[in-house]
């Protein structure tokens, strides 16, 4: 018997995303993949997956999903309201995010607005049984490939589950929200730093830039002081574009290129956002103000290693969580102890 999650009502921008389509950029194929690799890793760990399987990336507002399986364990990471709906007459019951839940056949999960970030993620234990395209499930809507028919989820989609029923184990929750860092967004200058004037570099590293409304999975355009080019100008003979590359077209406003970026491009790139700060940048909503700060490649690599270490620590520190409607003996015990203290 097949197991599915049914999309009763789609959200605004739900797509299946994994770590991306790696190895085909020489053929002009963008990697796509999750905008927030940290949240993808956490949501998979909560769902009980040992590696990064494809999850639903939720943009702005999430879907309502119905369980057509004997049981499914799922997890959501992000600041987002969740409601569990069982019998039609029963009132919806709020569920916590940042933990796993076991849902039964016929139950529905309503995922609300995503707050404080552009994306939230929903993973299922065992992952989705969707055929990969060029080695990945990542949805790239511009070419209509990956995920579900190469598009965002829509009403009535049936997402096949790789696992027919949930494994027997306790639920897990995140000990504390992961710290994405704060302060300036760190960048490595180059590859075309010589296409910008001294005044252009000073403006870029010395001014506030604001996330504009022109922000999607391909990139974020910033508003702020124009960045002046040198006599070499804004155009180059196209070369490769790394994740986080900051291209500056003729008008002088920087565009940071993200998951759905094209593989090569013909505008001079002043710097590249370091990989440790890219998830934080990708979460920013329009109106968010940032400063850019220059670091070296070696510093960037060290910052990434430190972040990877903290992420591994957060996953090792996942805590047991009370099952829905079940009895959490350790919590009861703690409560009794506290009661004991109060009443002693």
């Amino acid at each position: 018997m097949t197991a599915h999650l049914i999309v009763e009502r789609a959200g605004l921008l739900d797509t299946l995303q994994d770590r991306g389509r790696i190895g085909f950029q020489a053929l002009g194929m963008p990697t796509a993949g999750a905008m927030d690799r940290i949240a993808l890793r956490l949501v998979n760990a909560l769902a009980g997956n040992t590696e990064d399987l494809a999850a639903i990336e939720i943009g702005v507002m999430g879907p309502t999903l119905r369980v057509e399986a004997d049981g499914v364990r799922l997890a959501v990471v992000g600041l987002v309201a969740l409601e569990l709906m069982g019998a039609p007459e029963a009132p919806p019951k709020p569920l916590e995010a940042n933990r796993s839940h076991l849902l039964r056949r016929g139950q529905r999960l309503r995922v609300g607005m995503v707050e404080g970030a552009r994306t939230a993620y929903l993973a299922v234990e065992g992952g989705f049984a969707v055929a990969p395209f060029m080695g990945s499930l990542a949805t790239y809507t511009r070419a209509g490939i990956g995920g579900v028919e190469g598009r965002k989820l829509q009403d009535g989609d049936m997402l096949p589950l790789a696992q027919a029923a949930a494994r027997e184990r306790e639920e897990r929750k995140l000990g504390a929200p992961f710290d994405y860092g704060s302060g300036p967004i760190r960048v490595v200058p180059g590859p075309q730093a010589d296409h910008f004037s001294d005044a252009g570099h000073a403006a870029f590293l010395g001014s506030d830039y604001v996330v504009s409304k022109e922000a999607d999975r391909m990139g974020i355009r910033f508003e702020g002081p124009a960045i002046a080019h040198s006599e070499k100008g804004p155009d180059i003979v196209s070369d490769g574009i790394a994740p986080g590359a900051i291209q500056v077209p003729g008008a002088g406003l920087p565009i940071v290129l993200l998951a759905d970026r094209q593989t090569v491009g013909g505008y001079a790139k002043i710097a590249t956002v370091i990989s440790a700060d890219l998830p934080r940048l990708g979460r920013m909503l329009p109106g968010h103000k940032v400063r850019f700060m220059a670091v070296t490649v070696a510093e960037a690599e060290a910052l990434r290693r430190e972040q990877d270490r903290r992420l591994a620590q957060a996953i090792a520190g996942l805590q047991p969580a009370m099952p829905e409607g079940g009895i959490d003996l350790s919590a009861l015990y703690e409560r009794n102890l506290i009661d004991g203290v109060v009443w002693a």
């Binding site: 790696i22 190895g23 085909f24 950029q25 020489a26 003979v237 196209s238 070369d239 490769g240 574009i241 790394a242 593989t263 090569v264 990989s275 490649v297 070696a298 960037a300 690599e301 990434r304 290693r305 990877d308």
Partner: peptide, 22 residues
């Protein structure tokens, strides 16, 4: 991880968890 040829340059993509630029 992969390489991206263009008209005049080759971009070498790497996993910073597995190797360093140095």
């Amino acid at each position: 991880v992969e390489t991206i040829p263009s008209m005049r340059a080759l971009m070498v993509c790497y996993d910073p968890a597995a190797a360093t630029r140095a």
